[in-house]
């Protein structure tokens, strides 16, 4: 699939996400807008997954460790065919399978139940280790937020992945520079991330996390360094695609008013042209 088609899908996911947050009256729209291009590239360009066989032992795995952006994952899975597109309208509703954080038992295509931060990468290390033990070629991808890298468990996993030489593991850090209440730089500035990962023995690449060509190239197997896990530091914007949300800390989990909703949707629709 070429990058213009990937951009079209990403735009469609953003519009559905905006609508679902507006209708549900909740969600984490800022981080969902920042991670959407990464999810689109993974599911429609890079990963080998089959909606008809969601537990195929040889599937590639994605762990969305920043589980609060579950809605973006749900919509991506619906676009891919794992769940029905109509299901998205049940987001956060009574007894819906789609709660605020992903649940593998309820939602086909979800690999593990995330929500508390700092859980996804250790699980990704275990997945990659299982494939390595078997000599299997499937790959493991983990997406964390940048604020999430403040969790110590990530650094435990970073050390283990390098020790185990897990070159079948790719960590993508959604580096939007904002956390829930403030800028990363004003909270606990774990940036710059790339030299830290490199110092821990990872192969590191920095990209524009909204440039589909750069994302796809960074995810391609040709860019793997043998014997090293890979980290992609994806420079993104929280609220990407919506002018008044973009890079604005207020939009971590704020819900747009009707007027804001209309403006945001108009901007996304214009971008789709």
């Amino acid at each position: 699939m070429d990058s213009s088609e990937l951009r079209r899908i990403a735009n469609r996911i953003r519009r559905r996400d905006l609508q679902a947050v507006f209708e549900a009256g909740a969600g984490h729209i800022g981080g969902e807008m920042s991670v959407t291009d990464l999810l689109t590239a993974l599911y429609f360009h890079t990963m080998s997954v089959d909606p008809d066989a969601p537990l195929d032992p040889h599937r590639d795995r994605l762990v969305l460790s920043k589980g609060h952006t579950a809605l973006a994952l749900y919509i991506t899975l619906a676009e891919k065919g794992f769940i029905a597109k109509d299901d998205i309208s049940s987001f956060l509703k009574h007894n819906s399978a789609l709660n605020g954080h992903p649940n593998r038992v309820k939602v086909p295509g979800v690999e593990t139940n995330t929500g508390p931060l700092g859980h996804g990468l250790p699980i990704g290390v275990g997945m990659a280790k299982a494939a390595q033990l078997n000599g299997d070629t499937w790959r493991t991808f983990v997406i964390t937020g940048d604020g999430e890298m403040q969790e110590g468990s990530n650094w435990e996993a970073i050390m283990a992945a390098a020790q185990f030489k897990l070159d079948n593991l790719t960590l993508i850090i959604d580096h939007n520079r904002l956390q829930q209440g403030a800028r990363l730089a004003d909270t606990n500035n774990v940036a710059p991330l790339a030299p830290k990962l490199a110092a821990f023995g990872w192969a590191v690449e920095e990209i524009d996390g909204h440039d589909m060509d750069q994302i796809c190239r960074a995810l391609s197997p040709e860019t793997i360094t043998q014997g090293q896990p890979k980290c992609i530091v994806a420079h993104t914007n929280k609220g990407q695609g919506i002018s008044f949300m973009s890079d604005n800390v207020a939009w971590h989990h704020k819900v747009p008013s009707e007027e804001q909703y209309k403006q945001a949707m108009a901007e996304l629709e214009e971008a789709a042209q």
Binding site: T112, G126, K129, A130, A131, S153, A157
Partner: peptide, 11 residues
């Protein structure tokens, strides 16, 4: 976490 990931991978 590694244990959970290994289990996901069939171990």
């Amino acid at each position: 976490g590694v244990g959970a990931g290994l289990a996901n991978g069939g171990k």
